[in-house]
Simulated assay, not measured.
Amino acid sequence: MAIYQLPTGTYETRSAFAFKGGSFRDKRHFAATAILLQHPKGDLLIDAGFGSQVAAHIQSLPRIERAPYQVVSTASEQLEASGYDRSRLRGVLVTHSHWDHVSGIDDLQMPIWINEGELRYASEDRDGEVFRIVSAGHKIHQYEFNGPPYLGFSASFDVYRDGSVVIVPARGHTTGSVIIFVTLPTGKRYAFIGDLTWQLDGIRRRVERPLLLRILADTDPKLVREDLLRVIALANVMQIVPAHDVTAYHGIPQLSN
């Protein structure tokens, strides 16, 4: 069992928009990175990063949400370049359905792993438009939180039934967003928290998004606050990986290396 990062690009924003107390002068490059999770029972991608049609996907956003961006290789291109055997991939497991997590799905002909709440959000919400485009023609693998509470979260789904990859609901950012806990055989542990916070500053400083961004970006800011505190309590025992913090991926090897 192993994990690899597949960075597909970044887009720019200011830390003042990312977390309370951030500076407008502090420009951040938000990561759009997929994670390849290798397991003896079959592999998964966690999120998909930017795809080959990312320019069109960004153009579909409201003008106020568009930002300067930089693209490198798509997850699909990186898998191809490494000689990876795609028959091992069981699907793309999304932390949630926003465009910057799913753009690369249309380059990947494999099932999308998603729970009922997030599938409903992606089908109905304005922010699900890109998901609806890229998911066309893909098989949907719908999972349920049929497992017990896990690390303070109300329920869980044990992907491989061995405790190595456990998904829990974190429904405040979108109505079906999740956190994915990964435990490697070495004992190293990770929490891939999606957009619970956009930067590690939210963990280190114990702060939320600025008020306006909480109103605009989160379906339930109170739930985000509660889950953020749960994750902060775990920061000393595992590596916390907010999806958009470039530095959060340090120590995770790239597939091409």
Score class of each variant (00 low, 15 high):
residue 204 R to V: 12
residue 183 T to Q: 15
residue 192 F to P: 00
residue 92 V to R: 03
residue 177 S to C: 12
residue 72 V to D: 05
residue 91 G to Q: 12
residue 212 L to T: 14
residue 25 R to Y: 14
residue 174 T to W: 04
residue 116 E to V: 12
residue 16 A to Q: 09
residue 165 V to Y: 02
residue 83 G to V: 07
residue 15 S to L: 07
residue 225 R to D: 04
residue 22 G to L: 12
residue 236 N to T: 09
residue 95 T to R: 05
residue 68 P to V: 06
residue 129 E to L: 04
residue 187 G to Y: 07
residue 42 G to I: 06
residue 194 G to S: 09
residue 219 T to P: 05
residue 9 G to F: 03
residue 12 E to N: 08
residue 257 N to S: 11
residue 21 G to Q: 15
residue 243 A to M: 08
residue 105 I to H: 01
residue 200 L to D: 10
residue 132 R to D: 09
residue 177 S to N: 06
residue 171 R to Y: 08
residue 7 P to H: 14
residue 1 M to R: 07
residue 37 L to H: 12
residue 20 K to Y: 05
residue 202 G to H: 11
residue 224 V to R: 13
residue 95 T to V: 12
residue 130 V to E: 00
residue 200 L to S: 13
residue 215 I to T: 08
residue 220 D to N: 15
residue 80 E to V: 11
residue 136 A to S: 13
residue 172 G to S: 08
residue 9 G to C: 09
residue 112 I to M: 01
residue 73 S to Q: 14
residue 90 R to A: 11
residue 156 S to F: 02
residue 176 G to T: 13
residue 96 H to N: 08
residue 40 P to F: 14
residue 136 A to C: 02
residue 68 P to Y: 11
residue 93 L to H: 09
residue 135 S to W: 01
residue 238 M to N: 02
residue 124 E to P: 02
residue 91 G to A: 13
residue 199 Q to K: 10
residue 88 R to K: 08
residue 115 N to F: 03
residue 197 T to V: 11
residue 103 S to E: 01
residue 83 G to F: 00
residue 165 V to P: 15
residue 81 A to T: 03
residue 117 G to M: 14
residue 90 R to E: 00
residue 236 N to I: 04
residue 129 E to H: 05
residue 166 V to I: 15
residue 19 F to M: 09
residue 135 S to H: 12
residue 232 I to R: 05
residue 211 L to C: 07
residue 35 I to R: 14
residue 1 M to A: 13
residue 47 D to Y: 00
residue 45 L to N: 07
residue 231 V to C: 07
residue 26 D to L: 02
residue 84 Y to H: 06
residue 186 T to H: 06
residue 84 Y to Q: 03
residue 74 T to Q: 00
residue 117 G to E: 11
residue 200 L to W: 09
residue 168 V to F: 09
residue 42 G to S: 10
residue 41 K to R: 12
residue 245 D to E: 03
residue 113 W to A: 10
residue 227 D to R: 00
residue 47 D to W: 00
residue 232 I to Q: 03
residue 159 V to K: 00
residue 231 V to Q: 04
residue 60 S to W: 10
residue 139 K to Y: 06
residue 30 F to P: 05
residue 142 Q to T: 12
residue 17 F to C: 09
residue 225 R to G: 00
residue 83 G to E: 05
residue 239 Q to R: 14
residue 210 P to W: 04
residue 29 H to M: 08
residue 214 R to C: 06
residue 55 A to W: 04
residue 217 A to E: 01
residue 63 R to W: 13
residue 236 N to P: 01
residue 35 I to M: 15
residue 90 R to P: 03
residue 74 T to M: 03
residue 235 A to N: 10
residue 29 H to W: 10
residue 1 M to D: 06
residue 254 Q to L: 03
residue 179 I to L: 11
residue 239 Q to V: 08
residue 4 Y to N: 06
residue 44 L to A: 01
residue 51 G to S: 03
residue 210 P to A: 01
residue 114 I to L: 15
residue 148 P to S: 15
residue 119 L to A: 01
residue 88 R to L: 04
residue 256 S to T: 15
residue 187 G to R: 07
residue 244 H to T: 08
residue 208 E to V: 11
residue 213 L to A: 10
residue 48 A to V: 03
residue 151 L to I: 06
residue 151 L to W: 11
